[in-house]
Design a protein around this nucleic acid. Structure first.
Length: 641
RNA sequence: GCCGCAGUAGCGUAGUGGUAGCGCAACCCCUUGGUAAGGGGUAGGUCGCGAGUUCAAUUCUCGCCUGCGGCACCA
């Protein structure tokens, strides 16, 4: 049996040799470090006998595969510990997730938070006991029978649903066993102690709300305790920039019971909101959009006609008055309103593409459990627009939109953008010919804008394909914000047409598109991306003028007034506090510019500038400082290069 | 919506079957201090809401509301 190593070297071994034997043949050090092997591209147990000639690579703790194995082995140890401590608990599945793993259990009484330390302690014992791992191949029927007999009905169900071609393998760790595809380490001790149980949660069997709810335990696992600590520290840091926390600390917004899922924007938060809105408004205006404003309440009949009443009635707020029989619905989206605007007067092909934009206030009755700060709300404003165009204009309009979006994201501090293209679903309207055309148009347009896309087959809307834009924030999290959807249906359904070159009437194609998605959510993303330290043009308070001694009060007031006159958002802090205290406080408040004046500055008509996060101070003449600050605060789209 | 947990002053928290403390913030006084917390004092609470048990409930029980962590959902 010949084994080829990554460097091209070929080792000849006897029949039945394992990956461990290969490592041993290379050297004793490697034999010790080897945790698993990659055999012809697949990760195998170190103790599994090779089945013939193969390309083989030794996996040690440093390899990314090792971390995956650590996590999955830890999931097994979790299941062992749980069954040990809570006899009668059924095990179901326990896959890896980002940064860790979970295992889903079936148990009449739910776990409590107090159980976690107990389970974790038992897990550490199991790891220290270094129980040996054994892999067995089982007969399918016997496996089903076995798991039924020991009361593991979910495991039996899993086996029944496995494709007939799959080999049924069972892994033993000591006496405990589990149905598992593997691979695993040769013993539980190889896991190490860099793991921790994180939380308990309910989760539906097979991810379906119609099924039973299982008890899920989440854990995290790393190569060693140092990596674990680093991870826990990262979580703490992420928590510090949580938009709900920063929003309170910086007095940006609040939410309360009387308006569940809706935002009370405070003066500072709304300043940020308006700055962002005005920025988008300028971008839209330059991109040839017409901004409109349409009613929040529209007759039920319109929603029936558009199809929303049938499909989304449960998620709509309705409004009724005593004196009229009409039912009005609070708009959950802006499309019908924009179609009604389009339908005013006769539209010619010469007017297309017609881009109708709106900062559209929408309300949706979202499930209570899905609400999350600004990220998922019931009342929100979309930076929405509908482009009414011909089939031939889809590509060019989409390309232009991609460019606009990338431009905006870059201005807002996001360079890393991914695109997903969702294609025709099973249930759809329109001919395959039109779908072919639309999908190709989106693909071509995205490529033309210099973007790569990932395919999301079958995930499109029933009325047309769509692209979605996912941005990555400063700590690596991804957020889906922008979208563009092709719609062959709505205009026709609501009776909107244009007159073509040959005098015939056609419904226009509608492109539904949003750059930010929702103002609320995007501001949430911005808060977390910048951890509240906004670029100057967005910062709610751009500068604080403060004094060292009260003799400088009058001068400080003069500076604040001049800056205000220059269009800056300035606050004046004349409190009788030490300068150390004020510096600390305004730094924690994330104010970009601290302008400090004492006796010296008042005499020379200068000021001392301290930028957030920079300890160095700079002394400037007042006459120089004002134009400098004003220039610095110009929004990115208004800067002359 | 489902599972679990939680709700005490603006924020962060302690605590108890006999109606509540602490820190920061607020307010007042002293301090005028040159770049990340100067000192002293004062005020602030229907312990989420409703019911039940009890001589007595913030504490125990039930229901509801809201929030948090997941799951499901997201036109």
């Amino acid at each position: 049996m010949n084994v080829t190593l990554p460097d091209g070297k070929v080792l000849t071994l006897g029949h039945g040799a394992t990956g461990g034997d290969v490592a041993g043949a290379i050297g004793p050090g490697l034999a010790k470090a080897a945790l698993a092997v990659e055999v012809d591209g697949k990760v195998w147990d170190i103790l599994r006998p090779l089945e013939g000639d193969a390309n083989l690579r030794i996996i040690t703790r440093k390899d990314p595969e090792a971390l995956e194995l650590i996590r999955h082995d830890t999931a097994h140890v979790l299941a062992m510990a749980v069954q040990d401590l809570f006899p009668g608990t059924q095990i179901t599945i326990g896959p890896n997730v980002e940064d860790g793993f979970f295992y889903d259990f079936v148990r009449p009484t739910p776990f409590t938070p107090d159980d976690l330390p107990k389970i974790e302690a038992r897990m550490r014992e199991i790891v220290r006991a270094d129980l040996p791992t054994r892999r067995e191949v089982w007969n399918r029927a016997e496996a089903i029978k076995h798991f039924e007999e020991i009361g593991e009905t979910y495991k039996a169900e899993i086996i029944r649903d496995l494709p007939g071609s799959d080999v049924i393998t069972v892994y033993y760790h000591g006496d405990w066993h589990d149905l598992c595809r593997g691979p695993h380490f040769s013993s539980t001790g190889k896991i190490g102690q860099g793991f921790k149980l994180m939380k308990i949660a309910g989760a539906y069997w097979r991810g379906d709300a119609k099924n039973a709810q299982l008890q899920r335990i989440y854990g995290t696992a790393w190569r060693d305790e140092k990596e674990l600590d680093a991870y826990l520290k990262r979580l703490e840091e992420a928590e510090k920039r949580d938009h709900r926390r920063v929003g309170r600390e910086m007095d940006l917004f609040h939410m309360q019971e009387e308006a569940v899922g809706q935002v009370f924007w405070h003066a500072k938060g709304y300043s940020l909101y308006r700055e962002l809105e005005n920025y988008i408004r300028r971008k839209l205006s330059w991109a040839g959009y017409d901004e409109v404003k349409t009613p929040l309440l529209l007759d039920r009949k319109l929603w029936e006609q558009s199809g929303h009443w049938d499909n989304y009635r449960k998620n709509m707020f309705v409004a009724e008055v005593d004196d009229e029989k009409k039912t009005l619905a609070v708009k959950p989206m802006n499309c019908p309103g924009h179609v009604l605007v389009f339908k005013q007067g006769t539209k010619s092909y010469r007017e297309l593409p017609l881009r109708i934009a709106e900062f559209g206030s929408c309300h949706r009755y979202e499930p209570s459990g899905s609400l999350h700060g600004l990220m998922r709300v019931r009342g929100f404003v979309q930076d929405d627009a509908h482009i009414f165009c011909t089939h031939d204009q889809i590509t060019s309009e989409t390309t232009a939109f991609c460019r606009l979006l990338l431009d905006v994201y870059r201005d807002l501090g996001f360079e890393d953008v991914r695109v997903k293209l969702s294609t025709r679903p099973e249930n759809r309207i329109g001919s395959d010919e039109i779908w072919d055309k639309a999908e190709k148009a989106l693909a071509d347009a995205t490529t033309a804008a210099g973007l790569d896309f990932a395919l999301n087959p079958g995930e499109g809307a029933f009325y047309g394909p769509k692209i979605e834009f996912v941005l990555r924030d400063s700590i690596g999290r991804e957020w889906q914000c922008g979208t563009l959807q092709v719609d062959f249906n709505t205009a026709d359904r609501l009776g909107a047409t244009y007159i073509a070159e040959d005098g015939s009437k056609h419904p226009p194609v509608m492109l539904h598109r949003a750059v930010l998605g929702s103002m609320e959510r995007f501001i949430g993303v911005l808060i977390e991306h910048y951890a509240g330290k906004f670029p100057l043009w967005l910062a709610p308070v751009q500068a604080v003028v403060t004094t060292i001694v009260s003799d400088a009060d009058a001068y400080a007031g003069e500076i604040a007034a001049e800056l205000k006159a220059a269009g800056l958002r300035v606050e004046l802090d004349l409190r009788n506090e030490k300068i150390n205290y004020k510096v600390r406080e305004h730094s924690l408040a994330k104010v970009p510019y601290l302008l400090i004046v004492g006796r010296r500055e008042a005499e020379n008509r200068t000021l001392t500038v301290r930028r957030l996060g920079v300890e160095a101070q700079e002394s400037l003449a007042l006459t120089d400082a004002i134009p400098m600050l004003r220039a610095d605060a110009v929004p990115p789209d208004l800067r002359r290069p």
